[in-house]
């Protein structure tokens, strides 16, 4: 893909905005449409676009497969960890009200934010890892 100048320039311009949009979808999930899953697939799509234009070797320099293999279980761990944290704080599993002792609704927002972060990490890294293994075969 060395010669596709227009594709390279346009995708270089697009990718920062794709990632920014993913972050918006992630952090605005309480108020507008979106959330961890949607943000995760948008992040994955942005990196896949990068890989399509600049090649698998380049993207693996940005995000090595070994890092992804850590991130895939990390997301589930973050999610379940929030549950365990609410347990320790004296509530039920995933009872976000416990996360803020002064205002339960702040606890809800914090809990949802953390849990959605876990979903984002697992979804984005799983999608990318599947792409890596597919694209890395037969070469």
């Amino acid at each position: 893909m060395r010669s596709h100048l227009i594709l390279r320039v346009v995708s270089k311009l697009l990718i920062p905005f794709l990632l920014l949009f993913a972050l918006y979808v992630q952090f605005h999930g309480d108020f507008g449409p979106g959330g961890g899953f949607q943000a995760g697939v948008i992040v994955a799509a942005a990196f896949v676009l990068y890989a399509l234009i600049f090649g698998l070797k380049t993207i693996q320099k940005v995000i090595p497969p070994a890092l992804l293999e850590v991130l895939v279980p990390m997301g589930v761990l973050i999610y379940a960890g929030v549950g365990v944290a609410t347990w320790i704080l004296g509530g039920n599993f995933l009872d976000y009200n416990m996360l803020d002792s002064h205002d339960p609704s702040h606890g809800q927002h914090l809990g949802i934010l953390l849990v959605e972060a876990g979903v984002l990490v697992t979804v984005a890294s799983t999608m990318l890892l599947i792409f890596y293994t597919f694209a890395g075969r037969g070469r």
């Binding site: 309480d30 507008g32 959330g35 899953f37 995933l94 809800q108 949802i112 979903v119 697992t122 979804v123």
Partner: peptide
């Protein structure tokens, strides 16, 4: 929950167990 987007509050708060299960499914699939 004071979360205006009901989809998010149902998904992550009321049905947090289900979403944890879904995340585990994605992890397992990967």
């Amino acid at each position: 929950t004071t979360v205006p987007n009901v989809v998010t509050s149902v998904l992550a708060s009321y049905r947090g167990y289900d979403t944890l299960g879904e995340t585990t499914v994605i992890f397992t699939a990967g």
